[in-house]
Simulated scan of single mutants.
Amino acid sequence: MAQRIDVKDLNIYYGDFKAVADVQMEIEPRSVTAFIGPSGCGKSTYLRTLNRMHEVIPGARVEGTVEMDGVDLYADSIDPVAVRRQVGMVFQRPNPFPTMSIAENVLAGVRLNNRRISKGDAQDLVEQSLRGANLWNEVKDRLARPGSGLSGGQQQRLCIARAIAVKPQVLLMDEPCSALDPISTLAIEDLISELKSDYTIVIVTHNMQQAARVSDRTAFFNLAGTGQPGRLVEIDDTATIFSSPRERATEDYISGRFG
């Protein structure tokens, strides 16, 4: 299920402003890749290009290629909606649909994609997805209740269940723990470690300890100054990035000397 992503010569624009410049990156399947760097350096912008969500912003565009197992996701023949089915997204703040039950939230993406599904298959998919998000045992007796009634950490795991219900190949997570308490954060981190056996996972985080705990590879982004585009400074195995990075800027950021 998991797929490899190759990014080549990627430049990202908002109108005439170049937000991110010249990214070259390989994202390995069945692994967790963390993006770190100071605010405004383009981490989340770059993350959104991996499932073509960047282009929904008026005037936004990209140059370069994003290939998933050799297929350019930005080729003219590729449907952006199909890309977003294969590359799921979990956002910074939990966003269950407030008028839907827990079960309806899980099935929302499937139904949005006009997939016909029998009642029995729907029940099986709800259970399978909630188990995959380590949420089933906590909610199995209240599936008809609103998803918005869950705690923050449970809501985020519900959003992960909704994302994996459509059977994507890649999961993107944009600071998925920033709005959560430490116990809920630990639950999400444990879940990420479990999910990587089936998915390619990319996570943006400002938490250095979190990047060190959950990721196999870490990419450090930076920018030279206000108005300058963000750039990928280096990417390597997480242990290497945190112990002996190649670039002084990476070491300064990780050690807290700037950022």
Rank of each mutant, 00 (worst) to 15 (best):
S129D: 02
D69Y: 13
V83T: 11
A75V: 05
D121I: 00
P96A: 13
S129A: 15
R61Q: 10
L73C: 01
A75R: 07
R85N: 12
M53P: 09
R111W: 01
S44K: 02
G120E: 14
L125A: 00
P94L: 09
L125I: 01
K119N: 12
L73I: 14
G59E: 08
D79K: 06
R84W: 05
G132H: 10
G42V: 05
E67D: 04
V87G: 01
R52A: 05
R84H: 04
R116Y: 02
R52G: 02
P58M: 11
N51K: 04
P38Y: 01
I57V: 15
D76Y: 00
E63S: 05
V56M: 12
E55V: 15
L130A: 06
G120V: 02
S129Q: 08
N51R: 05
S44M: 03
F97Y: 14
G70M: 06
V110N: 04
V56W: 05
V62Y: 04
V81A: 15
H54V: 09
V87T: 08
S101H: 06
A75W: 01
G59C: 07
A75H: 14
K43W: 11
V83E: 03
K43I: 12
S118C: 08
A103H: 05
A60V: 08
G59M: 07
H54F: 03
L47W: 14
V71R: 15
L73V: 13
A108D: 06
E104G: 01
M100P: 06
I102F: 08
F97V: 13
A82G: 08
L107C: 06
Q123I: 00
D124G: 02
M89D: 02
K119R: 12
T65R: 15
H54P: 13
V90H: 10
S39Y: 08
V106I: 06
S39Q: 07
M68Y: 12
R93Q: 08
N51D: 01
P80M: 08
S118P: 13
A103G: 07
G59Q: 10
G132E: 04
I78V: 15
V83C: 05
D121Q: 13
N95P: 03
T45Q: 00
L73Q: 11
L107N: 04
R93I: 03
E127H: 10
E55I: 15
G64E: 04
R48G: 07
S118T: 15
Q123E: 13
V81L: 14
V126W: 14
M89A: 02
I78D: 08
L112C: 13
I117L: 14
G109A: 03
D121N: 08
D124Y: 10
I78P: 11
Q92S: 09
